[in-house]
Lab assay of single mutants.
Amino acid sequence: MSGYILFSSEMRAVIKAQHPDYSFGELSRLVGTEWRNLETAKKAEYEERAAKVAEQQERERA
């Protein structure tokens, strides 16, 4: 899992709640824009969280 995927899943729900009429493409475009504009430190937080999720998933598969 990547930081972007984690961010995307969280942001998509927020944007969808604010704009229920937006298409999947419109939501994706907005999520991508939000990610590109996100501060580097915040991106790093998402990357760290994603790494922890990936480690947990790997342990569960073992």
Rank of each mutant, 00 (worst) to 15 (best):
P20R: 04
H19G: 03
W35R: 01
M11N: 05
S23F: 01
H19E: 04
S2F: 03
R59N: 14
G3R: 00
E45K: 07
R61P: 15
K52V: 08
I5G: 12
L6I: 06
I15M: 13
A51S: 09
K52S: 08
A51E: 12
K43W: 00
R49K: 09
Q57Y: 08
S23M: 03
A54Q: 11
I5S: 12
E10D: 04
V14H: 13
N37Y: 05
V53R: 10
V53K: 13
S9V: 06
W35L: 00
E34F: 06
F7D: 03
T33F: 06
R12Y: 14
H19T: 03
F7M: 01
Q57L: 10
W35C: 01
E26N: 04
D21T: 12
A51V: 13
E26F: 02
G3M: 00
E45P: 01
S28L: 05
A51M: 12
T33N: 13
M1E: 06
R61C: 14
E55S: 10
Q56A: 12
R29A: 11
A13V: 04
E60C: 11
S28C: 07
T33H: 13
V14E: 13
E10Y: 02
S8G: 05
Q57K: 13
A50Q: 02
V31Y: 01
L6M: 06
V14R: 15
E58Y: 10
N37I: 04
V31T: 06
A51H: 09
S9L: 06
V14D: 06
K16Y: 05
K42S: 05
E34K: 14
A50T: 01
A41E: 07
V14G: 11
S9Y: 05
E10F: 00
R12T: 13
T40C: 11
F7Y: 07
R49F: 01
E47W: 03
K42A: 06
G3H: 00
Y4F: 09
R61H: 09
F7S: 02
S8N: 08
M1V: 09
R61K: 08
R59Y: 10
F24M: 14
T33R: 15
A44F: 07
K16V: 04
E47L: 04
Y46C: 00
S2A: 06
S2W: 03
E47C: 09
K16A: 13
G25M: 11
S8V: 09
K43S: 01
Q56H: 09
I15W: 08
A17P: 02
R49T: 02
S8H: 06
A17E: 14
E26T: 08
A50P: 00
K16R: 14
V53W: 10
K43D: 00
R29Y: 04
A51L: 12
E48C: 10
G3A: 05
R49H: 01
H19Y: 09
R36F: 05
A41I: 06
E47R: 07
I5R: 15
I5K: 15
I15G: 02
L6K: 04
A13W: 02
G32H: 14
L30W: 05
K43T: 00
Y22K: 15
R59H: 12
A13L: 06
L38C: 02
K43A: 02
Y46G: 00
R61I: 12
A54V: 09
H19C: 03
A17C: 05
I15Y: 11
E39I: 03
T40L: 11
I15N: 02
S28I: 05
Y22A: 15
I5A: 15
L6T: 03
Y22R: 07
E55P: 11
I5N: 14
E55M: 07
V31Q: 01
V14Y: 07
Y22W: 06
Q18N: 08
M11F: 04
E58G: 11
A54S: 10
S2C: 07
E58D: 11
A44V: 11
G32W: 13
E39N: 13
Q57E: 15
E55H: 13
E55A: 09
E47S: 06
E48P: 00
A17R: 11
T40I: 09
E48A: 12
S23N: 07
N37Q: 12
W35G: 01
M1H: 04
R29F: 05
G3S: 02
K42T: 06
V53E: 14
Y46H: 00
R59S: 13
A13I: 05
D21W: 04
E34H: 10
L30V: 13
K52N: 07
Y4W: 10
I15P: 01
N37M: 10
